[in-house]
């Protein structure tokens, strides 16, 4: 059995990253991967880089990283609601300004996917979807035949993605798997303050997906965010577990579960 730890969307939440990496260390996994979006939303974006390097985390480029690395004018999340756009701009401008040139150069070197072969299974790790870095794969808008199509096109038996901010796992009728590994950066709009990473155990016979909650000092993060004058709305999200911004992209089911 091979065990991997996977997460995405750190969004500069170095507090949660530290706790998650310590937890992963205790679980003796063979490898750790971050599926992209290191910065955004949170404070002091440069603080996550040394933690990732020290823990030898294999990192992919997410849409945010791709924007920062290429000096793009926005995060490529595709928001059009003026309120969502307002917050996305604030967040991107802050992160861009506070990410060092050295770290931006490093982001430029990151690949956009990893292919692994474990116990005869072909795994693809990517950020949004196998075909596009910023495609949102929500549980309620990803039907079986579409996921099967994506796996066919990618020549994969298992795909692991992030980007949406909410975890899910589907075993397809043909035995292949699709996993959204969740994010460490902010809670997943369920009214709790925990964030999540994923343990993937790959054996000959089967594959097991375990979602692991990470309880971290969100109040320390809130203090950092206030010190950096990041929006109150962001602080509310990490303190209550309810999303207050970027709501436009949520499909009906995911939106209906939240407070806003």
């Amino acid at each position: 059995m091979t065990r991997l730890a996977l997460f995405g969307g750190i969004y500069s939440n170095y507090h949660a990253l530290e706790v998650a990496l310590a937890d992963i260390e205790r679980r003796r996994v063979q490898a750790v991967y971050c599926l992209g979006d290191l910065g955004a939303f949170g404070p002091y974006p440069d603080r996550v880089y040394p933690l990732l390097r020290a823990a030898r985390v294999g990192c992919l480029q997410g849409n945010y990283d791709n924007s920062l690395a290429g000096g793009l004018t926005d995060c490529q999340c595709g928001y059009t609601d003026p309120r969502d756009n307002h917050f996305a701009r604030l967040s991107y401008a802050y992160t861009f300004t506070h990410t060092s040139e050295e770290n931006k150069a490093w982001l430029r070197t990151l690949p956009q996917n990893f292919r692994l072969e474990i116990e005869g299974r072909r795994l693809l790790l990517c950020h949004g979807s196998p075909r596009k870095i910023n495609e949102f794969l929500w549980e309620s808008t990803s039907p079986d035949q579409f996921l099967a199509y994506l796996l066919d096109e990618a020549d994969a038996d298992v795909a692991c993605v992030t980007h949406t901010g909410i975890k899910w796992h589907r075993k397809l009728p043909d035995g292949r798997h699709f996993v959204n590994v969740g994010v460490l950066g902010r809670p997943e709009n369920d009214g709790t303050t925990a964030v999540w990473y994923t343990l993937l155990s790959v054996g000959h016979e089967d594959l097991n997906v375990e979602f692991v909650p990470v309880e971290y000092d969100f109040q320390a993060l809130a203090r950092d965010m206030a010190r950096e004058r990041l929006p109150e709305e962001f602080i509310e999200t990490i303190s209550t577990g309810w999303w207050t911004t970027c709501l436009e992209v949520l499909p009906h089911k995911e939106r209906a579960r939240g407070r806003f």
């Binding site: 000096g71 004018t73 926005d74 059009t80 756009n85 401008a93 861009f96 300004t97 436009e248």
Partner: peptide, 24 residues
């Protein structure tokens, strides 16, 4: 999701972060 009203982002070396016109 709403149409992408502002058009795709362009690559530049110095993004313009002039204050958004929006007051949410």
């Amino acid at each position: 999701v709403s149409a992408q009203i502002e058009g795709p982002a362009d690559a530049t070396t110095a993004p313009d972060f002039s204050p958004a016109r929006f007051k949410p």
